[in-house]
Design a protein around this nucleic acid. Structure first.
Lengths: 193, 193
DNA sequence: GACGATTAGACAATATTCGTCTATCTGTCT
DNA sequence: AGACAGATAGACGAATATTGTCTAATCGTC
């Protein structure tokens, strides 16, 4: 990685806990500069605006999350446990860090406003990866979708949609891990032959 | 308590965690109003400004703390354990709630700027109460101050000054409880006959 | 309906923040 | 030494946010 890239990484590392602590709106560039131990002007050498800085942070988090998801789906175990691990990784990277924030809702909202494309792309890739895993499992006879009259892509989309809903409910007080595990038990039962 | 007093109490209850979370500067009256589930205008029915609201909160916290301190000094045990309990109560009421705030330094600074009188008065009362306890202990022969060539008031002032220093060190990363206990062991040793 | 408390919303006066710019400083390279 | 790139403090106008005040409308209780 080049020097400016390293600097950008350091800035994002410093900015994340500040955003988590105060939310996007209440976080000023001065706050981020202080956390990154550099001048406010230096931030603008790496990012052209507070919004672009946030976008870069979101993009990096999504890229990291997708690498973890790919690793999980390529791992050991049956298709359900691989999916469970993948989803856990996705949530650990993109939901859990903000869950205790108090401004979690504002941060997710800001993310959809400023980094909608990145977010939707990652979500689409997650659907595609899950669909591929389900297709493989179907080919080996590990699962059956016949009774559901659904394609692997349909099921993958439902899984991701449910994760989104569970994330939102968690902001409203529900327990993320518990709700996720319940949904995956439900999935296992529905797809077992 | 009258109705407006109850309303004020409810506002301060709601405002405290907001101040702890975001510090004084980053907390807006809109934030407090939202936390107290009332309109921003209603806050001004109870308090004439954000600064006065903070002052009232500080005054209430100090009053509560002093009640706990008096109860502790009137309790059981030898003079050292009563003093230890009293100081623990003082810190639990006035330091610990802000210790994890990240903006703890800013809050203490704001407190000295806006509620200096209340704070100094409470500190003075704490010194007086400790001095009285030491005087009584001296009269019963439980402690001796002869070798120190100091009055009870002198020793009480030193104790409170040390507590302040330990509080400041704690903001800088030291452990409040541990440092306090060490100081009190030191005190016990120095005053035992 | 009368009454007091509360609200949403508008308002001017401040205060804060953003993004930009300049002058200055600090290393590094030659 | 001088040239150079990166960083800094500080100032700046413009855009936003916040404060404290006010009014008109609403709510709940008598």
């Amino acid at each position: 990685m080049n020097q400016s890239g390293q600097k950008s990484e350091a800035i994002l590392d410093a900015a994340l806990p500040v955003f988590v602590r105060h939310g996007f709106r209440k976080t000023s560039m001065a706050d981020i500069a202080r956390a990154a131990r550099m001048s406010r002007a230096a931030l603008y050498l790496s990012f052209s605006s507070k919004e672009e800085l946030f976008r870069a942070g979101s993009a990096r988090a999504h890229a990291r999350a997708m690498r973890k998801v790919e690793a999980a789906l390529a791992g050991d175990g049956d298709v359900f446990s691989r999916i469970e691990t993948a989803i856990a990784a996705f949530q650990r990277e993109l939901v859990a860090p903000f869950a205790g924030s108090g401004d979690a809702a504002e941060l997710f909202e800001t993310n959809m406003a400023l980094a909608r494309d990145v977010t939707l792309a990652a979500r689409a890739e997650l659907v595609a990866l899950l669909a591929q895993a389900l297709t493989n499992a179907q080919a080996t006879g590990a699962i059956t979708l016949d009774a559901l009259r659904a394609t692997p892509a349909d099921v993958a989309a439902i899984i991701v949609a449910a994760m989104e809903g569970i994330k939102d409910a968690q902001v409203a007080g529900h327990d993320l891990l518990e709700d996720t595990r319940l949904f995956l038990r439900l999935l296992r039962k529905a797809l077992s032959r």
